[in-house]
């Protein structure tokens, strides 16, 4: 285990320069590019130049960029991401207010992509070169070309507007939201804890369309990899041995082949998560989901520098942690890997 701890520490240390590079990049882009946060905040109202300068001074954006940069880094090390320009509240609390919504969506998006991706990939591999294999492969390739926001809108048209099976947008129905109190920020968890069947159903229904939208592209990617990996594994000697022993085909496929086929797929999980966060921007926008990604888009429009920087650093840290966790988990899944 000593090896793993050392490896984890090394990786954590490597994350720091990566975060620093990203942060510096965003910090500079925000300040070098046109777009005045004070003007954006005042929203075109006619304000005297003196008052504008006063605001600039109060927000601390009138000082030289290097001074701002060093101060900002110092603040971040202390866990202070500054106050949002538009709400004047600490960015950290704004982020933590919205993060559970994104995490909930990401979790169910991943769940959908796994079930659908592994399922179709497995099916195609077992029935290789039969019609079902071709259908699945066309679906896999097609899913790469699917614009997420469009898929979300189409699902809304079909399943919300025309059929009325699911709500169009948001996390919870208006009437139920009136009495609903969220303690953790994870609505489904809160609903289950409340034990009220109607609330659980409502929250769950709100989750379906966004999760399918977010998970769809990933499902294609996973399915493709599962199929390729399964085909390779099904050719392996130990699968032939398992068959020769007279084991049932189902057991050979699920227990001997699939488990080994999944090993290379786990490695892309970290990358997958980065793509998922990118998809969350569009999914949250389409479904009016009050998460961190739509918060970021709104902050960009408002030129809310501290909020933009905070959200980006937060997302980057989150992805780094996931990547690290995946690498560590890898050594447990595949005992041959040693760090």
């Amino acid at each position: 285990m000593g090896g793993i701890t050392r490896y984890a520490l090394q990786r954590l240390l490597l994350t720091i320069p990566m975060l620093l590079i990203l942060l510096t990049l965003v910090f500079l882009i925000l300040r070098v590019m046109p777009g005045d946060p004070v003007a954006a905040m005042l929203g075109g109202r006619n304000v005297s130049p003196q008052l504008m300068d006063e605001y600039r001074h109060k927000m601390g954006v009138d000082r030289p960029i290097p001074v701002q940069y060093i101060e900002y880094l110092g603040d971040i090390v202390r866990g202070d991401f500054g106050d949002s320009f538009s709400t004047s509240k600490p960015v950290v609390s704004e982020i933590f207010l919205r993060f559970p919504a994104t995490l909930e969506l990401a979790f169910f998006g991943l769940l959908f992509s796994w079930i659908f991706g592994f399922g179709t990939g497995l099916l195609a591999a077992v029935r290789v070169d039969r019609p079902i294999d071709h259908v699945v492969r066309i679906f896999h390739i097609g899913s790469f070309a699917m614009p997420l926001f469009w898929l979300g809108l189409m699902l809304q048209v079909i399943f919300a507007v025309k059929l009325g099976w699911f709500p169009v947008a948001t996390r919870i129905g208006g009437r139920i939201a009136f009495t609903f109190q969220s303690k953790t920020g994870f609505y489904l968890l809160d609903a289950i804890l409340s034990g009220n069947g109607k609330v659980i159903l409502d929250v769950a229904k709100h989750l379906v369309l966004p999760s399918v939208t977010l998970g769809f592209a990933q499902a294609g990617l996973l399915g493709r990899m599962t199929r390729a990996s399964m085909l390779e594994v099904l050719d392996a000697d130990y699968v032939t041995t398992a068959r020769a022993k007279g084991l049932k085909e189902r057991i050979v496929v699920l227990r001997h082949a699939l488990r080994n086929a999944l090993i290379p797929i786990v490695t892309v999980f970290g990358l997958q998560f980065a793509i998922l966060m990118g998809g969350a921007v569009l999914t949250e926008t389409v479904f009016s989901w009050p998460g961190i990604a739509s918060f970021l888009v709104r902050s960009i429009e408002a030129r809310d520098w501290p909020a933009i920087q905070g959200a980006i650093v937060f997302i980057a840290i989150f992805i780094s942690v996931i990547n690290l966790a995946v690498d560590i988990a890898y050594s447990f899944i595949d005992p041959r890997v040693r760090y």
Partner: peptide
């Protein structure tokens, strides 16, 4: 690697907005 590991969609939005 720092740029690559970050969601490209979000980075593109930030850049184009700026």
């Amino acid at each position: 690697d720092a740029i690559y590991s970050f969601p490209s969609m979000i980075l593109a939005i930030v850049l184009v907005a700026m």
